[in-house]
């Protein structure tokens, strides 16, 4: 049912874990089947230096989480924002139709983490100006 690439990421997921002093945290729930994904990013000079994830979900959800972290690690924030759900699914050699919604989770969680980072940064910048 799953491609070899999905199974490979599922078996050896990259970047599992948490970042205690993360610059941004994104958490999204999957309204379709009730799963949960959390992505942590560490940003330096606008580049995603480190990224970790935790996922409560199916094989596809775990594989897409792993894939998305691999795709954006070392990339700039702008490059990371361009990663779409479809790009993640494609990079995994496709997902079964019933599992397409799981790939939404990964890109959405990444984008949420970046939003969170931007918000925090703005607040810090304002505080520093004062």
């Amino acid at each position: 049912m799953y491609s070899e690439k999905v199974m490979e990421h599922f078996t050896n997921p990259r970047n599992v874990g948490e970042i205690p002093d993360a610059d941004g945290i994104g958490e999204v729930g999957n309204p379709v089947c009730g799963d949960l994904m959390k992505i942590y990013i560490k940003v330096k000079d606008n580049v995603i230096e480190d990224i970790k994830f935790k996922t409560f979900g199916c094989g596809a959800a775990i594989a897409t989480s792993s894939m998305v972290t691999e795709m954006v690690k070392g990339k700039t924030i702008d490059e990371a924002l361009k990663v779409t759900n479809k790009a993640v699914a494609d990079a995994l050699g496709g997902l079964p139709p019933v599992k397409m919604h799981c790939s939404n989770l990964a890109a959405d969680a990444l984008h949420a983490a970046i939003e969170d980072y931007k918000r925090k940064k703005e607040r810090k910048d304002v505080a520093e100006q004062k």
Partner: peptide, 14 residues
């Protein structure tokens, strides 16, 4: 608790 069944089945299958 805290885990999902399909990923459990895939691991068992392996």
């Amino acid at each position: 608790k805290y885990i999902e069944g399909e990923s459990l089945l895939l691991n068992l299958d392996m």
